[in-house]
Nucleic acid binder design. Structure first.
Length: 438
RNA sequence: GGCCCCAUCGUCUAGAGGCCUAGGACACUAGAUUCUCAUUCUAGUAACUCCGGUUCAAAUCCGGGUGGGGUCACCA
């Protein structure tokens, strides 16, 4: 090869608009994005819509939204323009035609059954993969293949190659499932006398059963993660750790740190399995790192019922360290909004088994509650004193109160709840619990 | 099945011949704190796929077996 070279680092992500933004695609995009940013290059988004049958018109926006949500914004693409467009393959048909003609003229392709086929020559095709080292295929393993379908749309391998070439993509970073396509693409580059980019084949994300990550076995749509209330920075951080490791062994780091420390050398070759337990843990970390103000904004869309900002503001600090994903919020705090359903059996079970005792406890509390200054310290002091005075079992008693005012056995600290709930609601709930106990 | 890729705790991984009686993180278990839950802290269980070779020395290098994955469309 002559000394052809790329002027700048240009990477790309080339999703087909199927209607969902696939985590696998996001994963690949993340590495392309980071490498381009690290090298002050460009990250290109190209829409591969050459399959007319599968084309969903609204699907493009889904992709843009997902990338935006995750902070993987592209420098060029149908949504933002750029000097190497058009960025939709369906709008590049004449370009492909031109090179198809060239190849036919050069006797490197031929027509058969309404399609145009690429003529595979003998010999070997190899490249030096940035992640895997030298990979070589014997051309005799590869049969002539279609480059222009009879519907006059280009085939995947042809369109990809022409576009990557024309868009001056310097590094093709994609999943390992494309390894077997690479020799075909290299042959096309060679036939066109084009500069061959560097290839890097990332490990494939896998289901728990070790197969390639799929819709059937795993949530793969970015919108699912969004609806579940995972934070984008948590998803990104988690995805970084699939295959890549931080040089200092850190688990929690920002995308900017990833960009700074990224190297192909630190990408492992074996295909990782998605572990939701770790994602959940990580999401909790990021939630706890949020300011209360930010968390309030984040949690709002997940509320089933609208409540005042003031109230959310009071609740959020109580729930913050107990939250793993935002969608858990409404269920955890529903007792602040509506009247809780009290399970009498549960109340008895956890509250000390003796109906009369619990009833009496609540009555004694209610008798004095009027006089208590409504703040956590005072409330706690009162409850502890009354416990001691009457020789009650503190754990059981507090649990009974907890269930009576929240309906739950796991909640934030009791007196903080009471303060937010207010004196009226607290007393009302204790009173109605007494009634329930008969 | 052909071709290609891969192989360290259950999971994500560190490890580029001696620093490895293999380190970290999640999960799990136990304990501490505690009004429950959670947070936090402490401790523990748990892995180099196998067989040969190279070497004074191998998780690390080489070969083979086995296992797993990917791919073999006028889908992308």
């Amino acid at each position: 090869m002559t000394k052809k070279n790329f002027q700048e680092i240009r990477t790309r992500i080339a999703p087909s608009p199927t209607g969902l933004a696939h985590v696998g695609n996001i994963y690949v995009a993340l590495f392309n994005f980071a490498f381009a940013r690290q090298n002050k290059g460009k990250f290109v988004l190209r829409i591969e819509d050459t399959d007319i049958k599968r084309h969903v018109p609204e699907a493009e926006q889904v992709i843009y939204d997902a990338f935006k949500w995750l902070g993987l914004e592209n420098d060029e693409g149908p949504n933002v323009g750029g000097s190497y467009g058009p960025y939709r393959q369906s709008e590049r048909l004449e370009i492909y035609q031109k090179y198809i003609k060239d190849l036919i003229a050069k006797n490197l392709a031929y027509e058969k059954e309404g399609a145009v086929w690429f003529k595979v020559n003998s010999g070997k095709t190899s490249w030096d993969d940035l992640i895997r080292g030298k990979i070589e295929f014997d051309n005799k393993e590869i049969k002539d293949f279609v480059i222009l379908k009879s519907d006059k749309y280009p085939s995947y391998n042809f369109a990809v190659t022409i576009d990557d070439w024309q868009m001056k993509i310097s590094h093709v970073i994609r999943a390992e499932e494309h390894i077997s396509n690479t020799p075909r693409q290299i042959m096309i580059y060679q036939a066109l006398d084009a500069i061959i980019p560097q290839f890097a084949h990332l490990p494939l994300l896998r289901n728990t059963d070790h197969s390639k990550i799929s819709k059937r076995k795993n949530p793969v749509s970015v919108s699912w993660y969004q609806e579940q209330g995972y934070l984008p920075e948590a998803l990104i951080n988690f995805l970084c750790l699939m295959g890549w490791s931080h040089p200092e062994g850190k688990d929690i780091f920002s995308i900017d740190e990833f960009i700074k420390d990224f190297s192909f050398q630190r990408i492992s070759k074996s295909a990782p399995i998605f572990d939701f337990k770790k994602l959940d843990w990580m999401d909790g970390i990021y939630i706890r790192e949020k300011s209360n103000e930010d968390l309030i904004k984040l949690v709002k869309p997940f509320m089933l019922k609208k409540i005042s900002d003031g109230l959310i503001g009071e609740i959020v600090p109580l729930i913050k360290e107990r939250l793993t994903k935002l969608s858990d919020f409404p269920l955890m705090i529903n007792f602040f909004i509506g009247e809780p359903k009290i399970d009498v059996k549960l109340l008895l079970d956890k509250g000390g088994k003796d109906k009369k005792v619990i009833k009496q406890q609540f009555e004694l509390v209610l008798a004095d509650l009027e006089k208590i200054k409504w703040e956590t310290v005072e409330l706690e002091k009162f409850f502890r004193e009354i416990t001691e005075k009457n020789n009650w079992i503190l754990g059981k008693f507090f649990m009974a109160v907890r269930i009576a005012i929240t309906g739950k056995i796991a909640t934030p600290p009791l007196f903080e709840i009471m303060v937010v709930l207010g004196k009226d609601k607290t007393t009302t709930r204790l009173a109605s619990a007494i009634k329930l106990l008969g």
